[in-house]
Design a protein around this nucleic acid. Sequence first.
DNA 1: CTCGTTTGCCAACACTTGTTGGCAAACGGT
DNA 2: ACCGTTTGCCAACAAGTGTTGGCAAACGAG
Lengths: 192, 192
Amino acid sequence: MTARRSDTTRAAILAAARERFATDGFERATIRAIAADARIDPSMVMRYFGNKEALFAAAADFDLRLPDLSETPREEVGAALVRHFLHRWEGDETLMALLRTAVTKEAAAERMRSIFAGQIGPIAARMSPDPAQAATRAGLVATQMLGFALCRFVLRLPPVVELPPEEAIAWFSPTVQRYLTGEVDLYFSHDR
Amino acid sequence: MTARRSDTTRAAILAAARERFATDGFERATIRAIAADARIDPSMVMRYFGNKEALFAAAADFDLRLPDLSETPREEVGAALVRHFLHRWEGDETLMALLRTAVTKEAAAERMRSIFAGQIGPIAARMSPDPAQAATRAGLVATQMLGFALCRFVLRLPPVVELPPEEAIAWFSPTVQRYLTGEVDLYFSHDR
DNA sequence: CTCGTTTGCCAACACTTGTTGGCAAACGGT
DNA sequence: ACCGTTTGCCAACAAGTGTTGGCAAACGAG
């Protein structure tokens, strides 16, 4: 299969789409704007990807690329996870496109769900003292990691934006570690 | 100031707007749909509120209504905060409208920032061992609370949706408590 | 070179959006 | 009963959207 000339264009469209979707969200990112960024005619986007939804699906193809943590000591998995998320977030705007879109488009939300269930789930399954709690623990981890991404990259809450990476890791690691391996203390749920 | 007949209409529009903004987000919620829900002509929405942005501003007028925690024992503030957020979230769709919109509209994001800085900030200021860390601690609390809301109400991650309130309180209270009063352990940030 | 295929642009469609102006009906103080 | 004000609807606009079809130029195997 020889490299066609169109592959360059296809890649340019995908790059422009990712950027627009990431900063503007699905509805505000227009095909025309994406095409302009890619220095191409809007109609080309249609011929290459069919329609806007399919374009988004192609642009938001995402993998958390979680490292293999089976060799990591139990008590350090939380820190390793937080550290990985932090680095993964910074460079790739694909996840931001997905997050911004998942808020209003059900299809994107579904993909987000499957990503987190499929990738954090197995880790939680291996870490959890009780296998029945694995899904819950994966969900708890997701709340903290996605909450951080939301506040830092989307809402841009100043104190969260300015948080140095090492400090973020220091704060969030114990949280994630507890969500994965800790016991729930129902003492806190008493209404007092 | 006697009650005008238009007050009813105004309220109906606001209620419909809140619902649409909450479920669809700013761009997908159309004036026409909101007007239809309120059983009114679209042009009336304009006369009452000027334009769509002003309508959103009126509909998303929000207050966290945090309780006075000055009498609450230090070690129970985290649980009290989590419990309050949980209850506040369920009943009012205004915050969801704000969250869904803040993801794509800068003005809404700014309001979100001021709400959290203005409301959690003072609590963090009173709780933090070091006053200089107050803003950071408030931000950390925001990541966990907003992350929970995002996963439960917007993305609808199944394990987070199914989490019973008491259990959610039990899991998140220690986290929030630590963000407010705990010490950061830089041990976790070492790259190992 | 030849000619089918690929790659691209232009123009236009059908539709939805926020928004506006005019006009009819209901209201309400005098 | 009168008449200015309020409340409402209808029709339309201008702008922007995703999307389509046709046609020209570049390509590339024979």
